[in-house]
C-alpha cells in the first residue's frame, strides 16, 4: 500500500480510537486533577469549549486513550502484535494509577488499537504507520488550535452524553 495513504488511514483510525474512547470514559465531564482544570478553563478563556478543554487537560495530565494508542502502536512495532499491545495495556494501567486516574480509558485504548492494528495488518498497514498516525492525530487535538479543537471535542461530548455540568 502507498505509504502516505497508509499513514492517513492509520491517523484516522487512531484519532477515532482515542477520541471516542476518551469521550466515552468521561474525560470531558470533569477534570481528573487540578492541572486539567487549569488547562480547561484557560482554553475556555481563549474562546474554546470548557468540556473540550477538560478533555485536552485530562489527556495532558494522565495517560488516557491517546497515550494508550501511541504506546500500544510503538510496543506492537517493537515487540510484536498482540504481545506489545497487551504489555502496553498493563503498563498504561500502572501509569494511570500513578497519575490519579482509575485507568479505564488508557487501558481500553491500548487494547482496542491492538485489535485495530492486528486487523489493519491484513491490508498492509503495519504498526509503524500507527505510530506516525497517532502523532499526527494528537497534533490535531493538542498542537494546532486549542479553542477550535476543544469546540469539536465539546460537540462530540454532547452527542455522546458526556458534556460537563461544571461552569
Amino acid at each position: 500500500m502507498n505509504e502516505i495513504l497508509a499513514i492517513a488511514i492509520a491517523a484516522g483510525l487512531s484519532w477515532l480510537n482515542f477520541v471516542i474512547i476518551d469521550t466515552w470514559m468521561g474525560l470531558p465531564e470533569a477534570p481528573g486533577v487540578k492541572g486539567a482544570d487549569v488547562i480547561g478553563r484557560a482554553v475556555k478563556k481563549r474562546g474554546g469549549d470548557l468540556a473540550g478543554g477538560f478533555f485536552q487537560g485530562n489527556i495532558v495530565c494522565s495517560p488516557d486513550a491517546s497515550a494508550g494508542t501511541l504506546l500500544a502502536s510503538a510496543a506492537c512495532y517493537t515487540i510484536g502484535t498482540p504481545e506489545g499491545g497487551l504489555i502496553a495495556a498493563a503498563l498504561v494501567y500502572f501509569g494511570n494509577r500513578l497519575c490519579a486516574d482509575p485507568g479505564y480509558a488508557g487501558t481500553t485504548g491500548a487494547l482496542t488499537i491492538t485489535v485495530i492494528i492486528y486487523l489493519a495488518s491484513f491490508i498492509g498497514i503495519g504498526p509503524e504507520y500507527f505510530v506516525v498516525g497517532m502523532v499526527l492525530a494528537i497534533v490535531t487535538i493538542q498542537g494546532l488550535h486549542h479553542p477550535l479543537a476543544s469546540k469539536l471535542l465539546g460537540k462530540i461530548a454532547k452527542k455522546m452524553g458526556r458534556y460537563t455540568e461544571l461552569t
Binding site: 515487540i79 497487551l86 504489555i87 495495556a89 498493563a90 494501567y93 487501558t107
Partner: peptide
Amino acid sequence: VFPTAVLALGFSAIVFK
C-alpha cells in the same frame, strides 16, 4: 474484569516474550 484480567494478559505477554 478490570484490572485483574487485563493485567493477567499483560503479565502473560511479558513472561511469554
